[in-house]
Computed example of a mutant assay.
Amino acid sequence: MKTSIKTAVVTGASRGIGKAIALRLAEDGFAVVVNYAAGQEKAEQVVAQIQQAGGHAIAVQADVADAAAVEQLFTTAKSHFGRVDVVVNSAGIMTNVPIAECSTDQFEQLVRTNLTGAFCVLGSAARHISQGGRIIALSTSVIAKALPSYGPYSATKAAVEALVHVLANELRGLNITVNAVAPGPVATELFFNGKSDELIQQMAKLAPLERLGTPEDISAVVSVLAGPDGGWINSQVIRVNGGMV
């Protein structure tokens, strides 16, 4: 079903922040490609929710760290909808472990999903996105805080920010923007996993607004970057964290 409607590809869109982004972009009028790695049922539920609201969406499985699978993701998006206008790389994993206790296997797993995955998605996005398109990668605000146990995770996301700045320059003259959105602590399954109630409360107090963010707080900023008001924002890291510095 090819369409003249602008199309967004959102990775990691079966749950959490990625799901909120997919739903928000559909609300904004985009046809949405809901990418997932393993959560097919949840991805199809996101598609059904979009379709029930009158939007257009499909679910496409792809491991973001598999370059061939990512290329097929974009090929499928263009085959189905005819175009790709917005790409949001939200797929990611988090492991909280001190640097001295982090095994190379744990670190390489983080690198594979968070960094190699971003590299593959950003590269394919640059090859397939329409002129005037928007590329957005998810980073993290904990980079600036240098919080204990976040070293390996922060390292992967800092590298993603470096890719964003370089890609923005490499796409000079094509009217394509490349930005990163760096959430603070957000109330998602990924954030809560492995944390005590005490630690969760401590992290909720880090920002002057003294609360955890919501997935919708993040999707609202992605909406601006993907929409008509985001055209002059390029090569930026927007820290969406309630004032956590």
Rank of each mutant, 00 (worst) to 15 (best):
A20R: 02
I21V: 15
A22M: 08
A22Q: 07
L25G: 06
E27G: 07
V32F: 06
V33M: 09
Y36M: 05
E41L: 11
A43H: 03
I50F: 09
G55K: 08
I58E: 01
Q61H: 11
Q61Y: 08
A62Y: 00
D63K: 12
A65H: 10
D66V: 01
A68I: 04
A69S: 12
V70A: 04
L73H: 02
A77D: 10
H80R: 13
F81D: 07
G82C: 10
D85L: 10
M94E: 14
T95I: 15
T104K: 08
V111Q: 06
R112I: 07
T113Q: 05
T116I: 13
A118P: 01
G123C: 01
S124M: 09
A125R: 08
A125M: 09
A126W: 07
S130K: 12
S141W: 01
S141I: 03
A144P: 00
P148H: 07
Y150M: 13
G151A: 15
P152I: 07
Y153S: 05
K157A: 04
A158I: 03
V160E: 06
E161N: 15
G173S: 14
V181Y: 02
V181A: 04
P183L: 03
V186Y: 02
T188A: 06
E189S: 14
F191Y: 15
F191M: 09
F191N: 04
F192N: 13
N193Q: 15
N193F: 13
G194A: 12
S196Q: 04
S196G: 06
I200L: 15
Q201A: 15
Q201D: 14
P208V: 10
R211I: 08
I218G: 03
V222P: 00
V222M: 02
S223K: 11
L225E: 07
G227S: 11
D229Q: 12
G230Q: 07
G231P: 06
N234I: 11
S235I: 05
I238H: 01
G242W: 05
